[in-house]
């Protein structure tokens, strides 16, 4: 089991190396850093001087090595636009995105799994058919449209919720949370729903499909023959055996939610990483983009590692490794 974990860690390192390589390419070769810093009107001498201080006169692999050394300690340079260290910039925006994504995931699991179980157990019931229809809509409708509809109804017409921002936040160390104030919690509602609608629909369909499959398995029939209660057969045996693929997909989804909450954050002017990267792209702020890429790569690798660990926990057959 330990060798299995070590092997996974090894592959995480490999992935990180590749991602940082790409991030390095963006940083150094998209546009000219010297131009970006000094502007086009600087003299040739000034350019040569800066090139030497930045280490740009050295061979690529040496530059990459220095880039890696700095990246490991979180030094991704200075944002061209804000003149702030990139890491500081991203860390200040990260809590908003993480809170948004985590709330959306909890909501998606909390609603999607029970709905999926219900539909798996009564696939022909009227309520199941209704849920399936709604989930089809939920999967097909674009995110920004949901966000805009919510704003139209709850902000413009009913005036219940504010259409943008995080509300009041409380600082806990470097982390800022909106969960401790009323306005912060209210501000979360619409963005969370916007992000969660697709996830709920997908998790529901996934759980339903998997569970219907598992319900046909011999061990379910045998569990019934042992006289176990329906509740035990459905939840302890059928649902547990259906959850492996759900874990995989939810893991992947959390990763991509963090990475691509961009649309949702743009609609609600949510001050998270998504909005930051959108602005960085607009201003060709390459250090921010490079750091973001490295961060997303790292996030994905970590989530995959966690998913693998959860596998080991759920499924004893994988522990042989």
């Amino acid at each position: 089991m330990i060798t299995l974990v070590l092997r996974r860690l090894g592959s995480v390192l490999l992935v990180m190396l590749v991602v940082s390589g790409m991030s390095f390419l963006i940083f150094n070769y998209l546009g000219d850093p010297v131009n970006n810093i000094l502007g086009v009107n600087a003299s040739l001498n000034e350019r040569e001087e800066l090139r030497r201080t930045l280490g740009l006169d050295q061979p690529s692999y040496v530059q990459f090595w220095h880039f890696l050394q700095r990246a490991v300690v979180g030094d991704f340079g200075i944002s061209y636009r804000n003149r702030l260290p990139v890491l500081e910039l991203i860390l200040s925006r990260l809590p908003a995105t993480v809170e948004l994504v985590m709330c959306a995931t909890v909501l998606a699991l909390g609603v999607g799994i029970p709905m999926g179980v219900y539909c798996a157990l009564r696939p022909k019931g009227a309520f199941s058919r209704l849920l399936q229809m709604i989930s089809l809509v939920g999967i097909s409708i674009p995110q920004f449209l949901i966000g805009m509809l919510l704003i139209l109804i709850f902000s413009v017409e009913l005036r219940w919720l504010s259409a943008f921002g995080r509300g009041e936040v409380v600082q806990i160390g470097w982390w800022s949370t909106g969960l401790l104030t009323d306005s912060g919690r209210k501000a979360l509602i619409m963005p969370v729903i916007t992000l969660a609608v697709f996830q709920i629909s997908m998790i529901m369909r996934l759980v339903q499909g998997e569970m219907q499959e598992v319900m046909r398995a011999d061990f379910i029939k045998f569990a019934r023959a042992r006289g176990l209660t329906d509740r035990s057969v459905h939840l302890r045996h059928a649902l547990r055996n259906s959850l492996l693929p759900v874990v995989t997909v939810v893991g992947m989804q959390i990763g991509s939610l963090i990475a691509f909450a961009i649309v949702c954050e743009a609609v609600f002017q949510w001050p998270g990483v998504g909005l930051l990267i959108l602005q960085a792209i607009e201003y060709a702020d390459f250090p921010v983009m490079a750091a973001y890429l490295a961060m997303v790569g790292f996030g994905f690798a970590m989530i995959n590692l966690t998913v693998d660990m959860i596998y080991l926990f759920i499924d004893p057959r994988m522990r042989r490794g």
Partner: peptide, 16 residues
């Protein structure tokens, strides 16, 4: 009680 044909699939794989 009941016993089925395939012992490989009669038991829940995730439970001791």
């Amino acid at each position: 009680g009941a016993i089925f044909q395939d012992p490989l699939t009669s038991l829940d794989p995730l439970m001791t």
